[in-house]
Amino acid sequence: MVDRAAKIDSMIRTDGLTKRYRRRVALREISLEIPAGGVTALVGPNGAGKSTLLKLCVGFERPTAGRLEVNGIDPVRHRSRAVASIGFVPQTPALYRDLTIADHVDLAGAIRPRFDAAHARSRLAALGLPADARIGTLSGGEQAQVCLAIALGTRAPLLLLDEPLANLDPLARRDFLRIAREAARAGDTTIVLSSHVISEIEDTADRLLVLGEGRVLFEDTVVHSIDGHRVVDVETGLDGAALVGRFPGRGEDLHWLVRRAGTEVGRAATLEEVVLGYLAASRTASLAGVATGSA
């Protein structure tokens, strides 16, 4: 168990959290802490457990085992209080196609106590989205922006953005991330952004949390993640460095992600390469486990 002071510093805290869907295990006894403030990128391949973790936080799912706290609140026992401290943006904008943007803001104001409609409207106005536009006439990117604006209007201390970039074009992604970044830097909002588009979130995220096959593979600040690793492009250049994993490059070539420990080998890593290195290591370990029958 953790002390009370530490609890306040953690926006999301899990302890042995497990979620199982019949035979498939989405999260395996994960224990993590996402500190308050900034943007935490939750990255990993499809099926890594990112969405499951966020859905557990907002009370859409119930854990199979373990503990979960959101802003110090157990979302299973006190879902109302947990939801009241969360703004949520789903992967696919779940809006009413026949209603206008203004209707959605009004609806949010009607069902969410202390909803800051003016804040949401100002965000939408800044994007040039007309309040009387029907959702069905908006692009996917615009719908995602509406979801984000309404989530920001909740003034919740925690925003959970569940792969909101997946269906957006590159320009819409940039817009979306810019607004999220501004919101995080403007005040007391913690943003957890799940994505598998790593290159896009490098400039937005402050922290990185890599999930793979239901486990936490790596977590650190983005700065430390990049500074703490090197990429070696030729196997002979490893020179005894602590290998994390071998991952494919953009072409036929292979790269090796190593931990930076005193000696300088290879070149500086990008955030995407750090993530790829850990995912590749996880996959290799998993395949080895299957091969030896110990999965």
Partner: peptide, 18 residues
């Protein structure tokens, strides 16, 4: 069916009241 409950239930602290 249309998953608009994702929108509503993520905003409404009380599903009963909603």
């Amino acid at each position: 069916e249309q998953q608009t409950t994702l929108f509503a239930w993520s905003l409404a602290p009380s599903r009963t009241r909603w």
